[in-house]
Design a protein around this nucleic acid. Structure first.
Length: 222
DNA sequence: TAAGTGATGCAT
DNA sequence: TGCATCACTTAA
């Protein structure tokens, strides 16, 4: 029986410096690739867990696939708010997905985090998501949310506040991390029907924790 | 490849 | 109020 992580915050983890709000102010199309290699960290009473982001997708204003497309609703509310917040939504009756809100207040853009490499608190994540292979722990948008105990209660949390239960922290070795997992692939987004041809998915092809490989339409940025 | 799951939001 | 749709996962 999976044991969900407690949804309470703990004192600051001073080892981790959250990325500042200015990091999220550009369009999600810029932020999504820039996020690769930085750390998604969950702070719980039992300790921290999380790891480096290796796969993202951008959802833009005027993008029919974006949950914020059209107008503000109860669900997409935080996407319209200030950048640097978490947008967490429920999908397919079972799963949670985690986004970082981008662009200035009033512009609904976000980056869907699709996969992380489990680097910290692996035992906490395995307790919340028991899997045979570590490779299945966090190689999908709903998988790492289950492993890290991310659900609706975190919708809207400030990812730039060191006291938050979820932060995105700077990886001082990001350049090296990405180089070791090159190339950086830009391709089309997964699981959508609207605007499905846009090149707004980004992943480090050298990481074993990417959710799915693209067969074609790959473009290297390195 | 397909079923399961339930909230969401638009159509009625 | 009804119902198609859905940024997924798992078991086949």
């Amino acid at each position: 029986m999976p044991r969900p992580l407690e949804n309470r915050a703990v004192p600051p983890a001073s080892d981790f410096q959250p990325l500042p709000q200015s990091f999220y102010e550009p369009s999600a199309a810029k932020v999504a690739p820039a996020l690769l290699g930085h750390f998604l960290i969950r702070r719980t009473p039992q300790g921290i867990c999380g790891g480096a982001i290796v796969e993202t997708e951008a959802y833009l204003t005027d993008d029919p696939a974006c949950h914020g497309y059209g107008r503000q609703t109860p669900r997409n509310r935080v996407m319209y708010g200030p950048p640097g917040r978490a947008y967490v939504y429920f999908i397919y009756g079972n799963h949670w997905c985690f986004n970082t809100v981008c662009a200035r207040e009033g512009i609904a853009e976000a980056v869907l985090v699709r996969a992380i490499e489990p680097s910290f608190g692996k035992e906490l994540m395995l307790a919340a998501r028991p899997v045979q292979s570590e490779l299945d722990l966090s190689n999908g948008p709903a998988k790492f949310c289950q492993a890290m105990g991310i659900d609706r209660t975190f919708d809207g949390v400030d990812l730039t506040d060191p006291d938050s239960p979820i932060i995105v922290a700077r990886n001082l070795r990001k350049t090296q991390f990405c180089k070791e997992r090159a190339p950086l692939i830009t391709t089309t987004r997964i699981g959508i029907t609207k605007a499905s041809g846009l090149p707004l998915r980004f992943y480090l092809a050298g990481s074993a924790f990417v959710s799915r490989r693209s067969r074609q339409a790959e473009k290297q940025i390195v």
